[in-house]
Design a protein around this nucleic acid. Sequence first.
DNA 1: GTCTATAACATGATAGAC
DNA 2: GTCTATCATGTTATAGAC
Lengths: 197, 197
Amino acid sequence: MTTPHQSRADRRRATEARILAGARELFAERGFDRTTIRAVATAAGVDPALVMQYFGSKRELFTRAVQAFPAPPAPGGADALVDQLLATLGLKLGGLPEGTLAMMRSMLTDPAAAEQAREALGRQIDGIGAALSAADDPELRAALVITTLLGVTIGHQLLGLPALRDAPADRIAALLRPAVEALTEPGPSCGPRRPTA
Amino acid sequence: MTTPHQSRADRRRATEARILAGARELFAERGFDRTTIRAVATAAGVDPALVMQYFGSKRELFTRAVQAFPAPPAPGGADALVDQLLATLGLKLGGLPEGTLAMMRSMLTDPAAAEQAREALGRQIDGIGAALSAADDPELRAALVITTLLGVTIGHQLLGLPALRDAPADRIAALLRPAVEALTEPGPSCGPRRPTA
DNA sequence: GTCTATAACATGATAGAC
DNA sequence: GTCTATCATGTTATAGAC
């Protein structure tokens, strides 16, 4: 049952990968504080001290295991932007990457995760803000769009609010679309309410 | 400087109040896990064991110190509802009660806090859903409104996103208003995009 | 007797010995 | 790579002060 063609370096890489996978899952489920090195080691089938040997600290393990938020959206028109955002939300309501879940779950209680989240969300906000440069206060609008989607994602994925959990993702996206458009469009978004003045 | 008319029960109440105040502040700043009984005791100027004696457990202390989310909005028309929600948001962006902050900060990592948050948010959603019964999917719409405001509040108060932190509260409310209205109004809210077909 | 402080025990992160 | 030691923490049990 030995694998003679697997070098020591290969085995080390495989062990590292197992540790990272287990850590990602546990960090996503329980957050930074509640995840113990022992639990990660058990999940990976190794000795707890080995985890420390490989990664130096729990914090380093977290950083390595957790991928930052998805990259900012490709620059494009403001119209395509809304479609793109809602599409990623659709994904979010389905299967968000475990690393992103881990980050979101830890960002309110762990200062380092909070800093990473601030930076990642800031990049997204900047990207969206650039696409909204036609409107007034593009950055603020972008921040509101992002935090809105963040709130819905938290309510759905992390808190499991029944009202959201039981709704189909496309229905949520459909209801959210006009709201996001209202945030990205300058001035009073709807004509019918005030007929040109 | 002694207060001869202060009975033992009075002194006990005062000590309890000091402990609760310190706990509320620390829970709001650091969340449940990162707040230690020892730190609470130091903040209140008492012995750590006394805190346990008074409250039995850290969890009980948290429950006693943290007030639930604000009560659901008074039932009213859907129009008044939006005003009311944005008004509370205005408050939220200013000074949210420390207990609410503590709850929000802990709800992603502490299962008990998550359950409390689910219940409190569920009550708010039910209240708003009742006011939206004219529209389709009133509960889902209500949930999206609540999670939207939750996301903005988290981004502003707990994460401190610069784009939100630097914006005046009334400007945020003004930009958010059409978005919330789009969530509460039935049907396609804007004509210009697709002229009836 | 009730309030407060001290000590003891279990678990977790981390560092150094082997 | 594994084992042991150290420190911080939550919690329980115990002893002292009023």
